[in-house]
Design a protein around this nucleic acid. Structure first.
Lengths: 403, 403
DNA sequence: CTGAAAGCGCTTACAG
DNA sequence: CTGAAAGCGCTTACAG
């Protein structure tokens, strides 16, 4: 008996609990689909269920237990199962009248193509996996809101293209054990997150060598493995530093890691240096303090800066989280923002407009970023040429750098 | 030839572009797996690739092109393919030595079980789908941060249980067309989001009737279809209103929709009413203004309240978004918070601690909520008994209601 | 435009 | 503890 006809089987029974493995009806040589389907359907008791009345049916009403398959549709439509498959996928090969009949029946039975079967056969899953790395905050604290925003835009971009999105949080230190593409659960990967780039890079090279389809959000550099999409961090750093200079600040501290481990922050730093250079100002090493993208790190880095005893009249936090942490430290120490110290950030997370005073920062367009990431990944999957790209930053002026 | 041995096929070619459908080697009756595997492997040229040296191999080094299958592992381990399958799933039936040999080879080949095949056969996907409804904000604006926080905790809860998470944004008005469970892409659904409950409820009943496994986050009420997990909104509303009363406020306005469409806000309102009653205070209808959970709606509702000309000394925003919008309106109108007007919210979104003054609110423990949602859904999937549950709210006292 | 046949790569009774 | 056989529900050449 076909599984879909097992009247005894409770609707949607969980296979793990009630294993069933009865042989399915076989086609005798020479027997046609019509007769097969009839035999399949004749065996069941049709006790109840949805009522279907399609054009070419022998009996005017019949029912199907359990999830209908394409064979059930085929029987009811009086066609072969492959024709059903073609019709449902919109193949132009199928006669329009036939197609409509099939679609109609499928709708009535609430038929859904089994994704596992179609993915297995076609070797395409219609799914993208998003791996979110969050090494700086391995605890259950809040995820960086910038990535949350990216997640939102990626989800929407996938949906618009008819792809599903698998979301997975990973420690950068993990082995990325659950390899979504190798297990055929996803056609490609989007990598998102902060962490030690040197560590990260090794894994990227591995992925690249394996031929995995992936794009990552992050610094765009020469000779990187794979495809990267990122903000033009250099330009953003330059723009906001120029803004601080234009507001009359000259002793601008930079809070952020400038090592190879954080190429994004490093690029922002290089932009900062260039802006100063353009203004004829030397970069004072004492005005740079390492920090990673968390509020606490920003807070600590400002205290470190204060302890150095160097004079400064402005802060450029390499990310909003750093800048907001620094603001907290400044306020605690009695500084007035922006009248005594100006503060600027980078990212334009939602919080930036709510802190007091509202934070002047650099917007990274997450919507565009999500679109680009998904588009480029799909290109990779289709073996089309893809190049790493940067998106343009945009200065968002609020009150933290003065009127 | 087996697909995995097609030397001409480029590594990871995309099937859509290079369709290949060559027959696979057949077992002649009486022929054993060993011989089959040898024939399969003998056909290939072994030009290059990973080198494997397992214990019982004839040749000391051989390579496999493309993704290895369980048949490849079986050949190399000198066992049948089902034994490989058992060993990899940790079946106790497999001899330990055999298992280790198999695991070793699988590791060397970087073998990953094909999820589509295993899900198809076992009818279990090991995946949960999260449907996020966001009807009040159908544009590309920011997702409600409370749901983002839930998303994070749900993702982690799934990962801890070895489940993958499919994320999908839906309009409540949609037909939820892509039915993840019916297409066997997911074993169950988690529903999350705001929207008109009456609308929503219809769909829940449909899902329930179809036998879909789902749990939702939201108001827990008698006679609801399916399983709900939610905060004890009544208690939370009562607690925070009692707090406002204890701070000496007696004319407390409630901003939030109290209709059947928003049972969560309604429950908070009922708690608010009860707290006032306990204090011997009548609820003035003029002190209640409808609002949905967005900042703009909160802003507008406060302006509506002001236009009514009723006296009030405190605001209970039925959600943080509403409260924060109301704060903005109050500040614009020159009111001092909390000295002139106290403000309280509900949710404890990350922003709550950053607004000025920091917002006193009710915490909904998203971590616990995520765990409960996932646990209960898994119980449903395993046909274990499940009941709707509320989680306890927790008062978070900050400065917006006065010292 | 349609159908018969094969096969995607697993898991699951069943038999020994 | 292991293997031979069947089958999950599709899609894809192939032939007409």
């Amino acid at each position: 008996m076909s599984k879909s006809l097992l009247a005894e089987q409770p609707l949607r029974a969980v296979p793990a609990l009630k294993p069933i493995d009865t042989p399915k009806t076989c086609v005798e040589p020479g027997e046609d689909y019509r007769r097969l389907a009839e035999r399949r359907h004749a065996w069941s008791a049709w006790p109840d269920g949805d009522t279907v009345t399609g054009p070419p049916l022998r009996s005017s009403s019949m029912s199907i237990k359990g999830k209908p398959t394409s064979f059930d549709i085929a029987y009811l439509a009086g066609v072969s199962q492959p024709t059903v498959s073609r019709a449902l996928r919109g193949s132009p090969l199928v006669n329009e009248e036939t197609r409509n009949r099939i679609l109609d029946i499928a709708r009535q039975l609430n038929y859904k193509v089994d994704k596992n079967a179609s993915s297995l056969r076609s070797q395409q899953s219609g799914t993208i996996a998003l791996l979110l790395f969050e090494d700086p905050t391995p605890d259950d604290s809040h995820i960086n809101p910038f990535f949350l925003s990216m997640l939102g835009s990626i989800t929407r971009a996938c949906a618009r293209r008819g792809f599903d999105l698998l979301v997975s949080f990973q420690q950068l230190s993990n082995d990325w054990h659950r390899d979504y593409e190798d297990s055929n659960k996803a056609d490609g990967l989007i990598l998102l997150g902060y962490g030690d780039y040197l560590d990260y890079r090794e894994k990227l090279e591995k992925l690249s060598a394996q031929g995995t389809h992936f794009v990552r959000w992050g610094a765009v550099m020469e000779g990187q493995p794979g495809v990267s999409i990122g903000c033009d961090n250099y330009q953003g750093g330059l723009d906001i530093t120029a803004h601080l200079l234009a507001k009359g600040h000259t002793q601008i501290a930079f809070l952020g890691d400038t090592s190879e481990s954080c190429p994004e922050l490093r690029d922002r730093f290089l932009g900062y240096q260039q802006a100063l250079k353009n203004a004829g100002i030397d970069t004072a090493p004492a005005l740079q303090v390492d920090a990673i993208t968390t509020e606490n790190s920003g807070y600590e880095s400002l205290r470190e800066l204060l302890s150095r005893g160097v004079a400064f009249d402005a802060i450029f936090g390499a990310s909003d989280a750093i800048a907001i942490g620094a603001m907290r430290a400044l306020l605690e120490h009695g500084y007035k923002i922006p009248s005594e110290i100006a503060v600027a950030g980078f990212d334009d997370i939602p919080l930036a407009s709510y802190v007091n005073p509202p934070l002047t920062t650099v917007l990274q367009d997450t919507k565009q970023a999500g679109e680009l990431l998904v588009d480029n990944l799909l290109r990779l999957i289709h073996n089309e040429p893809v190049v790493s790209t940067t998106i343009a930053p945009r200065l968002i002026v609020r009150r933290s750098c003065g009127g």
